[in-house]
Design a binder for these strands. Structure first.
Lengths: 226, 226
DNA sequence: GTTGCGTGACTGAACGGCGATTCATTCGGC
DNA sequence: GCCGAATGAATCGCCGTTCAGTCACGCAAC
């Protein structure tokens, strides 16, 4: 009955802290503030242990205001995920197109994904941990973004196979899932652990090394592989 | 609303317990039944959306009985995780010791972990999804098992490096986290997707292929490694 | 063998706290 | 003055947990 979600973000242009209290009109700025508050609170306590009033407090708005911009607490999480993943996907698409060949694209993909999280512990935690908590939602509503994401990875692999840069006895879809998992796992343990800035960078570089060699078509003769 | 559930005691459990006339003594059989019920319910609805009464129903016991065996709903999840992970770790340790060299151990580890979940969609889902939901707990109480698990993986890698089977420019700890993530990611997408029995087997084999080549010391071409 | 009793495992209705959501009211901008 | 964004205290339904009873079993007494 209450369809209140009529505010939509025009684009990524989030006019930040313009020193302008300006009008009492609804603003994307307020919506963004709520999302940012949510990241903080969710990261600290997890989705279910987070109180709506805490999010409101972190965002500097009243409890009720949240319901002017979102349908429910669940909707806040979902929107947050949707919003951030969209940004990530957009960045990835642009950056990957710049790379000359599939191996470079693979490396860039890994570096970018982890690089964007580096220095953003809270966001990393929300994405890795809370993504799972809304899995129920994701499954029910079918996470379009998530699938898009996996497909992007799979396409890098399959293009590499076509071009002869990668061995072709491994399924791109399986590789995409495994790579997603590996990135997620690194981000998770990093976010829950020390989370030193720059820590993910080294990990990214190593992961890229592993994958590029792992996907290489050259049959290692020296290895006593059996 | 005001819909009280009917717990038909003995109903579902009667056939199960037919052989042995149940004594009125506390049994870990009952504890195990609760854990199994919990797996079913958690897998279907997720931890937070699961009701204690649903677990009781699935286990064929009364709501209150759960509190004879566990401290709280959280304790049920924690115990479940603890219990199942312990089993997995024990199996892994035994099996890995049988393998002749690190590459075989790595392959076996991957096959075993995914193989044990194959055909157990519900358990896979609880482990991959709910593990995250209790992350808060895991962090606070320090997950000993989880760390043990990562260390087991890291040790396989570092042994391989010492023996010359694996390249030594990659950190075993990073590799362990990435491998954990890859396995977790495969299990997750499998559990949430079609979950065909045998589906994980193929994935396991491919993942092993990737990792073994990826960790191989032979440089296939002029890779400006590192 | 049978009866009666004490023990404690088990039950499930009721409780109580809590927190997401609502809505009467306020108030700034035009 | 009017509109509607923003507020935040009050509401209300939900569900984890409790605990007063129930009853099966083992045992002792006969």
């Amino acid at each position: 009955m209450t369809e209140r979600r009529f505010i939509r973000r025009g684009d990524a242009s989030a006019s930040e802290r313009s020193a302008k209290p300006s009008s009492r009109k609804r603003t994307d700025d307020k919506r963004e503030r709520i999302l940012r508050g949510a990241v903080k609170v969710f990261a600290k306590k997890g989705f279910y242990a987070s109180r709506v009033s805490e999010i409101a407090k972190a965002a500097g708005v009243a409890d009720g205001t949240i319901y002017l911009y979102f349908d429910s607490k669940d909707d806040v999480l979902e929107s947050l995920f949707e919003d951030r993943t969209e940004r990530l996907l957009a960045t990835l698409r642009v950056e990957l197109a710049k790379q000359p060949d599939p191996p470079s694209r693979l490396r860039r993909l890994i570096e970018l994904q982890l690089g964007l999280l580096d220095g953003q512990r809270e966001l990393a935690e929300v994405i890795t941990v809370n993504l799972r908590q809304s899995t129920r939602l994701l499954r029910q509503y079918g996470s379009k973004r998530f699938v898009e994401y996996l497909e992007l990875m799979a396409s890098v692999v399959s293009e590499g196979q076509k071009s002869g840069h990668f061995r072709d006895d491994l399924s791109p879809r399986v590789m995409a899932r495994a790579l997603f998992g590996a990135l997620d796992g690194l981000a998770l343990t990093w976010a829950l652990g020390e989370a030193r800035t720059g820590g993910l960078e080294k990990a990214a570089s190593q992961l890229a090394e592993l994958w590029i060699r792992g996907l290489s078509p050259a049959a290692p003769s020296a290895t006593s592989a059996e």
